[in-house]
Design a protein around this nucleic acid. Structure first.
Lengths: 219, 219
DNA sequence: TTGCCTAACTAACGATCGTTCGGTTAGCTT
DNA sequence: AAGCTAACCGAACGATCGTTAGTTAGGCAA
């Protein structure tokens, strides 16, 4: 339509295994796209139904309410994000440097792979009632807590140097969040390159020591 | 109401001189608060009218449509933001280091001083038609272009070291944007401290040289 | 007082909102 | 062939949406 798009991505990707032509999945993908592009309140149930190739009444055969659709998207999104960063950090070495790189690469990777899911589950979360949002809030806190723990540990060991660890959490988390809005496969840098760049940014932001062993290479 | 607030700020601050009890200003401040907290589509004209202490019809004596209210908020917000960073950079010295510090401090300062204005003018902008959003888009490009120019200049002079200047623009801009969502006067750090911290983060992210003259002090 | 202007109001328009109810279809089991 | 189940749809409910037309109240000039 117009120049002012909410996010650069144009295709709604949901987790593998959930996309298929089954009714419930079609509705979820359609809602993902419309909620991402227009916001939850800006996309009507009729819009979602039309995009899913279904009549409005059919949606209520799969979801109890419009809010339940959003709750499911938020839960799936935060679940995948937390799963990604947690796995990446666990599989990295014990060094704080490695952990931050693993976290940021996974974090940015989620926002480039699932931009619409990231936008919806982060910027529409406030609509959910306390009950429907509870599961998502837990995951959000876990993700943020993990990053905070990595940074605090690195500061204590002297690897990182920041005045306030939480401010670094906010900065690193914030710059990663925004990636979902401007990244698209058509961007001049690949998702891998963006993730690498942001990981380097995070290391610099934390004033991280150069790697302990030889193979050092500056950004 | 619930835990899940869209942003931490609770009071709607508009630019000085626009707040007063005059009808048009009351409506604008009320719309600012509700659009920030619930989103443009999530806040009805009746809600805005009630918050402003007037009847719905009165709003149309001051603004042609609901969209015009949003357009005005977006314009004011981007105008103030651009004015702030531009002035700060111009008043700083010619050194790239000083310019980045000035830019980031002003950028973060805007987001801590006018969090609701920042949230609305950045995350509801996509609703505006091409016509109504045109003025705002120009200002947005100017702001981003200014940051990009500062970084490019610093890279050319060897002060900064980044592989892709635009990626640094995205990272620095993104981390500043998010401040509007979590900052509140009740936060443990003052707005000044947050701005200082983010300026330091930006310098580190760009791998800036230590200041050329003596008075160097590490973060 | 009269007339006018501004600003706010009451009341309502048609459209669209989320949601529900009852019925229809398609496919499988027996 | 008969019966069951799950999925889907047509039609409509009351509520709320953005917006407008017409009216009323108050201040000021004549």
């Amino acid at each position: 339509m117009s120049i002012n798009r909410r996010l650069a991505a144009t295709t709604a990707r949901l987790l593998p295994g959930l996309n298929p032509s089954e009714g419930s999945g079609r509705v979820l993908v359609a809602a993902l796209k419309l909620f991402a592009e227009r916001g939850y309140a800006g996309a009507s149930v009729r819009d979602v139904a039309a995009a899913a190739g279904v009549k409005p009444a059919t949606i209520y055969a799969h979801y109890a309410s419009k809010e339940h659709i959003l709750a499911e998207l938020c839960r799936v999104g935060h679940d995948e994000q937390y799963r990604g960063v947690r796995t990446a950090v666990l599989e990295s070495g014990g060094e704080s440097r490695e952990q931050i790189v693993a976290y940021v690469r996974a974090h940015v990777g989620f926002h480039t792979t699932y931009p619409m899911l990231a936008v919806v589950s982060n910027s529409e979360l406030h609509v959910l009632s306390e009950d429907l949002g509870a599961a998502t809030f837990v995951l959000r806190r876990e993700s943020e807590g993990l990053l905070q723990d990595i940074i605090k540990r690195g500061v204590q060991s002297g690897t990182f140097k920041v005045v306030d660890p939480w401010l670094a959490v906010a900065a690193i988390g914030g710059m990663g969040l925004r990636v979902a809005y401007w990244f698209s496969p058509a961007y001049k840098l690949s998702a891998e390159q963006v993730a690498d760049g942001y990981a380097e940014f995070a290391l610099r932001l934390l004033a991280a020591d150069r790697p302990p062993v030889a193979r050092a290479q500056a950004g």
